[in-house]
Design a protein around this nucleic acid. Structure first.
Lengths: 111, 111
DNA sequence: CTCTCGTTATGACAATTTTGCATAACGCAT
DNA sequence: ATGCGTTATGCAAAATTGTCATAACGAGAG
């Protein structure tokens, strides 16, 4: 029996950011490619692309600069806005999971 | 832009308890009927029934005593185990949402 | 005894969402 | 021109979720 928690941000009732999207952006930053990033976190390119589009549309911010074709086939990189958003989200997530786990253990396991 | 959080308990990778199931059990306790409880929280009886079955099977605990037919057509009531589980879950949930909201405001709204 | 009533119980089908596949377009390098 | 690895996107398949219809139940009324 394990505890799970999820944290996400919504705009107009639609999710725009959460742990999965965080990992996706981080991986894009690491590889400079949506394709490689999607492989890294085990989702399809299709899904990654959908995520990015939805995020950008909902937030009204450009998060990922993309180029199809060119050197090495092209690639993608994060905008400054994306980095800022990512940084804040990381701060938000920090400590929450640990707190939840601790509480769960106290209540369901100890006694 | 709003923050959302979710908390649930899994057994063998399958969800067995969360906020929705909590409301369901509480409503069953209140009305003595799965049917009425489902209406109260706006889910179909079918879904409520599936939730209960899955919970009981995964936890290996009987949570809801049911009777079809009889006085008033029958009904359902929580077992002691269900009440205990419910109580612990309420303790677990308590304070977490508030903490998340506070953190979110500090990070995303203040500045 | 038979009928009624409001339940629980379940199967079958419909609708929606998610996932995966195929393919086009791009632009630099060779 | 051709090849390469990307981004971009339509479409179908698969999985999930929701809805509806209907059976069974058992006390109580008549």
């Amino acid at each position: 029996m394990v505890i799970k928690s999820k944290l996400w941000i919504e705009v107009e009732g639609e999710p725009v950011f959460g742990r999965g999207r965080r990992f996706l952006l981080q991986a894009i930053d690491k590889y400079g490619s949506i394709n490689k990033a999607a492989k890294e976190i085990n989702i399809s390119y299709r899904k990654a692309w959908s995520y990015i589009n939805a995020m950008e549309q909902r937030l009204g911010i450009r998060l990922v600069e993309r180029q199809a074709g060119g050197k090495n086939g092209g690639g993608a990189r994060l905008t400054e806005e994306a980095r800022d958003f990512l940084k804040r989200y990381e701060m938000l997530e920090e400590g929450i999971r640990e707190m939840v786990d601790k509480k769960f253990n106290e209540i369901f396991c100890k006694k």
